[in-house]
């Protein structure tokens, strides 16, 4: 494991913790897209099918359990928790996220490294993760006042993807056969989706102003 990968995992972990902290302590999910959270839960469920079959390391297994547990509990909170549910902006969060599932699945059936069930599901999770943030970005654009925690959550998620790209570059030069076009291209697409958000995030940070995205 290299420093970029570790930093990427840690920002990813931090993003999830920030979100859970917000939901759990303030009992509010204002500004958070349930659609994106549902997609993330599907992403982890389909990617970590190997959790009981392939042991990589204790770190790996623990992190997988954390991401699975946190993504499903966030969805549970927004859908089922009495107070949190009330703060959910259903009318703003209108992205048709189900329409992302089928194209990603078909693409995974067509373009994969190996045509096996686990591998296709793994590839599907990569394609789906690349676009899973879209409902959240649309919701951010509609939200007049983005609160700090929501802004930090999206920023940390974007940072995680950016750090993973550095991790791939590092691994490509240090590990002899490390060439994986599918995660690289989908990861790059995913990171590019954050570019616009990053721009406004840094602008607001530089000017010490509240984060607001242009409509």
């Amino acid at each position: 494991m290299n420093i970029f990968r570790l930093a990427g995992d840690m920002t990813h972990l931090a993003s999830v913790l920030v979100l859970l902290l917000k939901i759990h302590t303030i009992k509010s999910c204002a500004g958070i897209s349930l659609k994106t959270q549902e997609l993330f839960a599907i992403v982890f469920a389909s990617r970590y099918l190997d959790i009981f079959t392939d042991f990589i390391s204790l770190y790996n297994t623990l992190m997988k359990l954390i991401f699975l547990g946190s993504s499903f509990s966030i969805v549970w909170y927004i859908r089922r928790h009495k107070l949190v549910r009330r703060s959910y902006d259903k009318d703003q969060d209108t992205f048709r996220h189900y329409f992302l599932l089928l194209p990603c699945f078909i693409l995974a059936l067509l373009i994969n490294e190996k045509f096996t069930f686990k591998e296709v599901m793994w590839t599907f999770s990569l394609y789906l993760e690349a676009v899973a943030i879209l409902p959240q970005l649309v919701l951010l654009q509609r939200t007049k006042n983005i609160d700090n925690l929501t802004g930090q959550y999206v920023f940390l998620l974007g940072a995680y993807r950016g750090l993973y790209i550095l991790n791939w570059i590092y691994r490509y030069f240090t590990e002899p056969h490390y060439v994986h076009w599918i995660p690289w291209i989908s990861g790059l697409v995913q990171t590019l989706l954050y570019a616009d958000f990053f721009y406004y995030y840094f602008e607001s940070w530089k000017n010490n102003k509240k984060l607001q995205l242009p409509a």
Binding site: D9, H12, I56, N60, M63, K64, Y164, N167, H180
Partner: peptide, 10 residues
């Protein structure tokens, strides 16, 4: 699991 496998990533 080989060293150069993307499946060891999260």
């Amino acid at each position: 699991e080989t060293e150069d496998d993307a499946h060891d990533e999260l």
